[in-house]
Simulated assay, not measured.
Amino acid sequence: MNTKALPDELRRYKRQIIMPQIGERGQRRLLASTIAIIGLGALGSVIATSFVRLGIGKVKVVDRDHVELDNLHRQILYDEKDLAAGLPKATAAAEKLRKMNSQVKIEPIVAHAGPDNIENIITDVDLVLDGTDNFETRFLINDACVKHALPWIYGGVIATTGMCMVIIPFKSACFRCLMPQKPPAQSIPTTATHGVLINTVSIIASLQVMEGLKILLQREEDLIQKLVQIDVWRGSWTLLEIGRVENDCPCCGHKKFEFLAR
């Protein structure tokens, strides 16, 4: 490909445009796409940074929290100036992302994604990415995305382990096929009790971005289509087949969106 002939708006992407998986047509498709990132902690920071540099048309970044000191070791969008200023993560993230790529429209939403606003947040997007750290919000995202037949990508990390799974409503298993009910709070390990490494975050978020890229490029045949489990300390990767339980799943089977009704 003669990248010298690329128009101005595409030249910054020439090193990915020359890849057959993307090409000029694919890059234009990315520039016409909109994504929503729910949660701007560790995963959300890497996801947002990667997609903005890849050249997505519009990114909605959603988080209600403010930058805290113990975020800085793993949440790569923030620094000590953001901490000192007491900035909301969505505000700080938007400022940094706009400096990375002024072509991308960034819409910061300083709010908790809940039943009252999740459908408005995702109404005009092509893909939703999970950067959250709690199951309540993931079940909510699942309900909203299944209801609107919108693909989303689950990601979770704890200590040195992580998981990633692509959810294509009515084609793949949804999150409630994987986990029918929200586990009791006391049974769930958290980063506050078990810690987390930036290495784990980077790998899982990068997997989410890669799978999301395939969806936006309309290359669903190349998706992993399995639950990916990793342990970066042990260097282990496991791929688990998760089947859609259409007849038993309350969400994608019976279309009961219980978390949207709360």
Rank of each mutant, 00 (worst) to 15 (best):
Y154D: 03
F135S: 14
I17L: 03
S236D: 10
D70I: 01
L227N: 04
I188K: 04
L54H: 11
E9Q: 06
S50G: 04
K96P: 05
R176T: 14
R176P: 05
T238L: 03
G55M: 02
I17K: 10
V201Q: 08
F51A: 00
E95W: 00
E119P: 01
A36H: 11
P151H: 05
A149Q: 06
N120E: 07
N134H: 06
P7Y: 04
L10S: 13
L43Q: 13
C251W: 00
C251F: 05
N199L: 06
L129D: 05
V104P: 01
M163R: 13
P250M: 13
M165L: 12
R25F: 00
G55F: 08
F170V: 14
S206M: 03
V46T: 15
I203R: 04
K182A: 09
Q186Y: 11
L213V: 09
M163C: 11
I122V: 06
A205W: 09
V196N: 07
L31M: 12
V228L: 13
Q218F: 09
Q229T: 10
I118D: 02
E24D: 10
R244D: 07
W233C: 05
K60R: 08
Y154M: 12
L216G: 06
P108Y: 05
I242L: 04
L43D: 15
I198L: 06
R234M: 08
P180V: 15
I204P: 05
I76M: 03
R176Y: 06
V52T: 14
L97C: 11
E221G: 12
F257C: 05
F259W: 01
T161H: 07
N134K: 15
A84C: 04
A32H: 13
R138L: 07
G195R: 12
V62G: 09
A92H: 00
M179N: 07
T3A: 06
I198P: 00
G86M: 09
V166I: 15
L54Y: 06
A32T: 12
C145R: 11
T137A: 11
W152M: 11
P7G: 03
H73P: 05
Y78S: 01
L140K: 07
G55H: 09
L223K: 10
H254P: 06
D65F: 08
A84H: 02
K96I: 02
R138A: 10
G57A: 08
L83A: 07
G26K: 01
T91E: 13
K214F: 14
G243M: 09
T91A: 15
G195T: 02
T132F: 00
L31S: 09
K4R: 01
I153N: 10
A42P: 01
T34D: 09
S172D: 14
V59I: 03
